[in-house]
């Protein structure tokens, strides 16, 4: 008698994993001498490219494309920063301090402070610690990212029922995954979902931080990034 073959990861999570884009690298300007401003410019350029990829990734979340265009825009306008930050958190899990924005852009606390990103550093390190303690898997991380987008409390939702169905589909996928993969941890789904308020708080701080940097004309920002920042104000 052989153990039943482990249930194939549910379709939603395997779809999320298969549409995971390859991590981007930072593109620091080789000519500009290293400085806090250069760090910020490199980071804003990277985040704008991440944003482009994330918008395209969102279209591949099971259920997202069945939403109206208005609702797709609404969820992205309200949840984009949370989704971006979860990518940073996931990449930073291997490190005991600092934030890994890209393989070639790792900022420790003093660097974040000097670049004016300390208000972002603190809550994100708290979130990273939580996920390290939970030993979060890649499947859980990509599902949480999709849920953060689906659950982003957009103001102008056109069809609430279809957004609810979108959320339920992701919730079911996470529950199905935990039942199959972590059956012994009966509170795991709840523990993962209870990290989302901190993600929301981190997202608001990040938006305020980049908005302040923009208003002070400290760093040039791409039009898409500014357009999305503007929606969060």
């Amino acid at each position: 008698y052989t153990h039943p073959v482990k249930s194939i990861r549910n379709k939603v999570i395997s779809q999320l994993l298969s549409s995971e884009p390859a991590p981007l690298r930072a593109s620091p300007d080789p000519v500009t001498p290293d400085s806090d401003l250069k760090t910020l410019m490199t980071l804003c350029d990277l985040l704008n490219r991440e944003l482009l990829v994330m918008i395209s990734w969102a279209k591949h979340i099971p259920g997202f494309s069945s939403l109206s265009l208005v609702d797709q825009m609404a969820l992205l306008q309200s949840g984009w920063m949370e989704a971006l930050l979860l990518c940073v958190v996931w990449r930073s899990l291997a490190s005991t301090q600092g934030l890994e924005f890209a393989e070639n852009l790792h900022l420790n606390e003093p660097q974040c402070k000097n670049a004016g990103l300390l208000e972002l550093y603190t809550p994100l390190r708290l979130l990273i610690d939580k996920y390290q303690q939970l030993n979060i898997s890649h499947e859980e991380a990509v599902t949480l990212r999709a849920m953060a987008l689906a659950n982003s409390d957009a103001e102008h939702v056109e069809n609430g029922d279809s957004v609810l169905r979108f959320q339920d589909g992701l919730h079911e996928a996470l529950q199905d995954y935990e039942v199959n993969e972590r059956a012994a941890e009966t509170h795991r789904v709840g523990r993962l979902l209870m990290t989302l308020p901190l993600l929301r708080q981190s997202s608001h701080r990040a938006v305020q931080c980049f908005r302040r940097l923009h208003i002070q004309h400290l760093v040039p920002m791409h039009k898409l990034f500014l357009e999305m920042l503007d929606t969060k104000i």
Binding site: S19, P21, A22, V53, L69, L76
Partner: peptide, 20 residues
């Protein structure tokens, strides 16, 4: 939609994240 024309355009084109 006018205010968020870049997002609007991105949602309508069909680039895959892997390509991007």
């Amino acid at each position: 939609k006018e205010k968020h024309k870049i997002l609007h355009r991105l949602l309508q084109n069909s680039t895959s994240p892997v390509d991007l």
